[in-house]
């Protein structure tokens, strides 16, 4: 498998007003008049201003250390912790990925907030996040197709900052994937700039499994995410 780079149009991502309304919390039939028009405007604007890019790089030289729940890619160790380790440990190779909605939407989020247009800033924020996730979905399904052609499967994608994997893991990831194509840089505290970006790892191999994200994976007790998802 080869490394790949992608550029998407926002229209490729099939973002809909109702999808954004659901994320905000509106249920079917509820009056969302306050935001419906604004979401439509922001999606339209995003299609003019967003430079949506994604890339993945394949690494064959991987090994796992069960005791420390670590993965080594080449000579770089990643302290991915138990949850991510369980999902990746049967991988024969891995893909490191990066996606971004580009700098402009991130700029508009902060400009709107600073100018006091809190609602627009909030809608930009949600639309920006959805663009990144949708771009990552497209990139991931391309990777899955490539893997299937070679008789392999892929895992779900996992990112530093989630499932116990410390966000500082991103510094090591950027040593392997420099972020130049996507134009993403890291701050000292390992946050990505532009903020509407995502990075992470996907396992590849004959014996890996694609497991959906579920709160059962996590051992946190009383977390709001868990309460919310269990209804």
């Amino acid at each position: 498998m080869k490394d790949k780079k992608f550029q998407f149009n926002v229209s490729d991502l099939k973002l809909s007003v109702s999808q954004v309304e659901r994320i905000i919390g509106y249920k079917e039939g509820e009056d969302s008049g306050l935001v419906t028009g604004l979401i439509g405007e922001v999606i339209e604007e995003a299609s003019q201003i967003c430079s949506v890019k994604a890339e993945y790089a394949i690494f064959q030289d991987v090994r796992f250390e069960d005791r420390g729940k670590m993965i080594f890619i080449g000579n770089i160790d990643f302290d991915i912790k138990g949850i991510v380790y369980q999902q990746l440990k049967k991988s024969e190779s891995v893909a490191l990925f990066l996606c971004t909605a580009g700098p402009e939407i991130s700029r508009r989020i902060s400009n709107s907030m600073n100018e006091g247009d809190l609602l627009k800033g909030y809608v930009y924020d949600i639309v920006g996040s959805e663009i990144v996730e949708a771009a990552a979905d497209l990139m991931q399904s391309n990777l899955e197709g490539e893997a299937l052609n070679e008789g392999n499967k892929i895992t779900n994608r996992y990112s530093p900052g989630y499932c116990g994997w410390d966000v500082v893991g991103q510094h090591k990831m950027f040593r392997l994937l420099n972020g130049e194509y996507c134009g993403v840089r890291l701050t000292e505290s390992a946050l990505m700039n532009p903020v509407k970006s995502a990075s992470g790892i996907i396992g590849i191999g004959k014996n890996v499994k694609f497991n959906p994200y579920t709160c059962e994976m996590c051992n946190m007790k009383g977390c709001t995410y868990k309460k919310f998802r269990s209804g």
Binding site: Y26, L34, V35, G116, D117, L118, L119, Y122, V123
Partner: peptide, 17 residues
Amino acid sequence: RKEIYVPQMLMSAKAMN
């Protein structure tokens, strides 16, 4: 009580400001 969502709250905050 989940009777309103973040957008309504932001509008109220803006009115308050």
